[in-house]
Design a protein around this nucleic acid. Structure first.
Lengths: 154, 154
DNA sequence: CCATTGTATACCCGAGTGGTATAGTTTACT
DNA sequence: AGTAAACTATACCACTCGGGTATACAATGG
C-alpha cells in the first residue's frame, strides 16, 4: 500500500518542469543532477511518462524533455498510473479469478474496497501540478522568497 | 499501491468470525478449509491479528481463535494496519531522511499526499465489519436466502 | 501423560523494485 | 557527409519482500 520510488521521483520531475517556462526543454542530465535522481534510472522512468503522454521527448543535440500538457491538466493520479499502471488497491479488482470463491459482486469487502478506491482516485484527481506550484509559491512569499524550483517530495 | 494477499485473507477471516455467534471459538484448521487459505500461512497471519488485539487465541484442545472486539469496532483500516503496519502511501511519511532534499514541510507534493492519505484513512475507518455483514445479509434476502457465511473478497 | 491445539523461528522461492550496462537511433550543427 | 549530443531499447543484476513451508516447542483439557 505504498507508492514506489520511481513514482516519487516522477512527482519531483513533473513539478520541476512545471515550474519552468511553458514548453521549456530540459535534458535528462539536467534533471538528474537537479533532482538528485540516478541518471539511468531516471531515463527509464521518463519513458513511462512520455508513453503516458505527460511528457514529450526531443532527440538530438539540445534535446530533452518537456511537459506535453498544461500543469493544471496533470494530476497526481496521472503520474502514479503512468509509472505504476492502473490503480487498484486490491487484486480482486484486477483479476476476478484471483478470488478463490468468485463471489465478486456478492462480496461485501469487495464492495467496500471499491468504495474506498473510488474516493481515493477522486482525491488524487483533485491535485494537479498547477495547484501544487501555487502552494509552493505561497510558501516562498511567506518564508524566504528563495526560489524553490527544485522540490522534493520528502 | 496495493494491499497484500495476507490482508485480503484477513478480511475474509474477520468477516467469517464476525458472522458467527459472538465469542465463538474456531480452530485455525477450520478457518483454513472454510476460507481456502493455506494453513501455515494463515497461522502466521492470524498472529498479527492477535497481536493487534483484533482476535484472541486459545490454546489446547478445542482451542482456536475468536474476535476480541465487537464487529462494529473493527474497521478495514484496523485489519490493514494489523497485517501491514501503519498506513503510509509514501516513504517520506515514514522516514523524513528518505527524501534527499529534506524539505518535507515546504514540499507541496508531500502536503498533497498527506491530504490524500488522511482522506484514505478516514474512508477506511468508515467501514466496520458489522456494516459489512449487514450488507451481506441484505444481499441474501434479495437473492436467494442462502447462507453466505463463507465470504470472499474477490 | 498424552493428544490437540496455538507459538516461535527459521527457511525457501519467485516476483518486483531499484539500479546499471551496452548498443543503438535520431537530430542539429558544421 | 560526419560527428557529437542527446534520447531509445533491451537486457541484466542485486536486493527486498510477498507468499508459503518446515520443525520444534509450549499450553491446555481430559
Amino acid at each position: 500500500m505504498q507508492l514506489t520510488q520511481a513514482t516519487d521521483y516522477s512527482f519531483r520531475v513533473v513539478l520541476y518542469l512545471a515550474a519552468l517556462d511553458p514548453g521549456a526543454i530540459v535534458s535528462a542530465k539536467d534533471i538528474s543532477t537537479h533532482e538528485n535522481v540516478p541518471m539511468r534510472f531516471l531515463l527509464k522512468t521518463l519513458r513511462s511518462l512520455v508513453k503516458a503522454g505527460i511528457l514529450r521527448s526531443y532527440r538530438g543535440p539540445d534535446g530533452g524533455y518537456a511537459l506535453a500538457k498544461q500543469p493544471e491538466n496533470i494530476t497526481l493520479r496521472d503520474v502514479i498510473e503512468a509509472v505504476e499502471g492502473p490503480l487498484y488497491i486490491n487484486r480482486c479488482f484486477i483479476d476476478e479469478d484471483y478470488c478463490s470463491k468468485h463471489w465478486t459482486s456478492a462480496c461485501p469487502v469487495h464492495r467496500a474496497l471499491g468504495d474506498v478506491q473510488r474516493k481515493l482516485v477522486q482525491e488524487l484527481d483533485k491535485h494537479n501540478f498547477a495547484d501544487l506550484l501555487a502552494h509552493n509559491r505561497q510558501d516562498q512569499g511567506k518564508n524566504s522568497g528563495r526560489l524553490l524550483v527544485s522540490v522534493s517530495t520528502g
